[in-house]
Write a protein that binds this DNA or RNA. Structure first.
Length: 243
DNA sequence: AATAGAGCCAACCGCCACTAA
DNA sequence: GTTAGTGGCGGTTGGCTCTAT
């Protein structure tokens, strides 16, 4: 990749020296007024370029490692709900940027989904979770760790239908014997005894947020222990509640 | 070992929404 | 109400790396 000078502004990859200078100036002036900040820094970069570099690379607490299976599940399900709202999805994945998620989606997930949808179009859409194929032979989500069976793909074998705001587990094509149990539990967590469906505001949002977690439960091979579910809740609720 | 093609990802571009003057 | 400036978002590009031949 080459560096380019357009007018008085530099373009192309950032140098370590530029990163250091940008980091220092952002810490001093804060994450705002990017044009002024760019001028102040002495960097021959546009404010827009500085902002992008900071947001996608230099910002503290960014994760730069591989996307985990749990994160992948969340991306898949939130994308199913929201479409290409990358920044919105990124808010559900602390430490991940919209650009990172977008790239991951394009390079990893899109093809898998298309392949999966191809399979669905050739076979029965409804799945029976009582069969080993539908549960996924070794896909489990126990105690906060999941194992993905490569041949089953990232979805396991759930339906790809988009859930509505009042959907339950069946929206994912789950007909697991544990469906009601988990659904009830999710409801108790997410709906907070909301019965007035004419006032679906914050509760609806909470429910939508929880949908990103559904696949993990869909892959449980056996009825989850109450403690397990609460461990999972403890693990993910801070993420749902932030953003 | 050389080459072509595919995949990945950082960075850029253009559009839109918001805000202040 | 209008306009200019700014920031945020999603789409796209282009170069580097990896893999297959």
């Amino acid at each position: 990749m080459e560096n380019h000078d357009v007018g008085n502004l530099r373009r192309g990859p950032w140098l370590d020296e530029e990163d250091e200078r940008l980091t220092a100036i952002v810490k001093a002036l804060g994450e705002k007024h990017w044009d002024a900040l760019a001028n102040e820094s002495g960097l021959r970069r546009s404010g827009k370029s500085c902002r992008l570099r900071w947001m996608n690379y230099l910002r503290p607490n960014l994760k730069h490692g591989e996307i985990t299976y749990e994160e992948e599940h969340i991306i898949l399900n939130l994308h199913k709900q929201w479409g290409n709202k990358w920044s919105r999805i990124a808010k559900r994945l602390p430490g991940r940027t919209d650009n990172e998620i977008k790239n991951y989606w394009r390079s990893h997930l899109k093809k898998k989904i298309e392949a999966q949808q191809g399979l669905h179009s050739c076979s029965e859409a409804k799945q029976d979770f009582s069969t080993p194929e539908c549960r996924g032979s070794s896909d489990e989500y126990i105690g906060g760790e999941s194992k993905m069976n490569e041949k089953d793909g990232i979805f396991g074998t759930w339906s790809l239908e988009t859930p509505g705001p009042s959907s339950n587990m069946s929206a994912f094509g789950c007909s697991s014997p544990y469906e009601r149990h988990i659904s009830d539990w999710m409801s108790s967590c997410c709906w907070q005894q909301q019965h007035d469906y004419n006032q679906q505001t914050d509760e609806i949002k909470q429910h939508e947020d929880c949908m990103g977690m559904y696949p993990c439960f869909c892959q449980l091979e056996s009825e989850p222990e109450e403690d397990t579910m609460h461990n999972v809740w403890d693990l993910w609720s801070p993420i749902w509640e932030t953003g």
